[in-house]
Write a protein that binds this DNA or RNA. Structure first.
Lengths: 300, 300
DNA sequence: ATTTTGTTTTTTATCTACAATAAACATTTT
DNA sequence: AAAATGTTTATTGTAGATAAAAAACAAAAT
């Protein structure tokens, strides 16, 4: 019915409200907008509501926080998610569910109805999602789920290895005063910290893993590599929520490999970098293959 | 105004009509549909119109061609292009025009109006097109043209080289009785034929070039490599229409490199394959860089 | 029994409309 | 004069509607 949900406003409102402290004065509208990463129009809408709710007193440049907002002042989390995120979550759950067999048809209208959204948004999502190689479309006809098959995992791993070897070599060539080395040292220390408390913290590894590989890939300064890594990150993000077997052991091993890999990068020795990178990629490939759903073999 | 143009029907109608021969009998509806690559519904619509126009006599299974269709019977070519193709052509012309500077904003509504189409189709096209790395979008805001810059060409060339070296190595490992070798021999002969008549035929090279590289890439059986090559093919297709300088000389040189490359593949010697592949990719990179518009340097 | 034709239903492709958001323009304040 | 606020305009994001095209179902013919 409504053309568009004001989720940008609600999400930014929540974000801004929780950071408010009583009796402080707020900065100018353009500054607030920049802080929140929204337009000034949205920033003004936030100020308007804060004022209406009696959270701030607002008169031109004077913006005083009267009281701390409570949980009750915030918008519920269901209303702050962007439609794209809602569709993504919903769709990933469906295709990772047990009854989602490769070869299955995907129906735009049915999907839209189940998610409670229009078909246009679902269509656009599927078009964007198609670059991850998990779905495919025949023109004028339906989408087909290709699924998390062994073929998919192998093809993904092959490209990932080509790209990461390239990026790692580039990283090794970064000038010594570059920011990359500072970031790498910080990530190295985080690995050590996590290892020291591995029994408690092994679940946090996937976030660290993503940050580490992203740092490497940024060195390549290649948009195609960066895009591909985005795809990998999303696929892994959802996939590993479904496959948590032997996570502690697997993650501990990966941390050790990362540390070897980092040491090789810091040595600047290209041969050592390649060896350490290959070693890690080899075991990452095994992990990926082991995490596949059992039955998933292409049924085209 | 109209929800959807019947371009599938019109295009298939033309395709089928020109192939008709007087006094022949036509096959069953499912067979016609399969021949044309459309649904039976569309095939029936074609038969219906052919019948109405007096081109065939149609009664159940009996379908006799009464007369050869004339040009006058066919739909004009403007009505047979799919909307996607129209938008693609129109958009590529715009971004390859001289006044399309990198950093330029792309306006969906303006584009749609100029092409004479709805915004939804333009949006979907832009989303699909974005994976080629030439445009980029900030959420809730406009698309930006990144353009055929030197950076773009270098990033494209890097990935292309990684993929092609991989695919070429895989091709070299194909079993000797595989179809790939037959196709390769055929393409080799076509290269020789073109070389013998290079002054007349150098303009046909780009089609041969695309077929050759596609054949190599198919050996990798990797959806990400295949998708990337699709992107390259489209970019090159339009790009080289705008940059035809020294085409004869450039193409003749490329043919020689291809022949060396093919010989290396046929030898099955992995080291030779890599050498020949690298040599060709190196000069392809130079060609790409030389063909860039002169001014195009990123203006972010 | 399988294939073909006839008919109906489902699904996609595309248009239009409109609220949310961004961006531009105008006025005021420092 | 530069920056902030106030106001208006342009553009995007999404829903809903509908014709084209595909797909499913039903009846007839080989």
């Amino acid at each position: 019915m409504v053309a568009r949900q004001n989720t940008v406003f609600k999400e930014a409102y929540n974000r801004y409200a929780v950071a408010l402290r009583t009796d402080t004065a707020l900065p100018s509208e353009p500054e607030i907008a920049a802080q929140l990463g929204v337009s000034r129009s949205t920033a003004r809408a936030i100020l308007t509501r804060l004022s209406e709710e009696g959270i701030i007193r607002w008169n031109k440049r004077q913006k005083i926080v009267l009281r701390q907002p409570t949980d009750h002042d915030l918008f519920p989390s269901e209303e702050t998610d962007s439609l794209h995120d809602i569709i993504e979550r919903s769709f990933m759950q469906r295709i990772l569910a047990d009854d989602a067999a490769p070869g299955m048809q995907i129906n735009e209208l049915e999907l839209a109805r189940e998610i409670g959204t229009g078909t246009t948004s679902v269509r656009e999502f599927l078009i964007r999602f198609s670059r991850f190689g998990l779905i495919e479309k025949r023109p004028n006809s339906h989408w087909t789920l290709k699924g998390f098959t062994r073929e998919f995992a192998l093809e993904l791993a092959d490209v990932r290895e080509m790209f990461e070897l390239h990026s790692a070599a580039e990283f090794g060539r970064l000038p010594r005063d570059s920011q990359g080395w500072v970031d790498l040292a910080a990530i190295r220390d985080e690995h050590h910290a996590m290892l020291a408390d591995i029994n408690q913290r092994f679940k946090d590894f996937s976030v660290l893993d993503e940050r580490f590989h992203l740092l490497i890939h940024r060195a390549s300064k290649n948009r195609f590599i960066a895009d591909f890594y985005d795809a990998i990150a999303i696929v892994f993000h959802y996939h590993y929520q479904w496959n948590k077997t032997a996570a502690r052991q697997r993650n501990e091993r990966a941390i050790h490999e990362h540390l070897d890999y980092i040491a090789a990068l810091e040595s600047g020795d290209q041969a050592a970098i390649e060896t350490a990178c290959r070693a890690h990629l080899h075991s990452a490939r095994q992990t990926l293959l082991q995490s596949l759903p059992q039955i998933a073999t292409e049924t085209t």
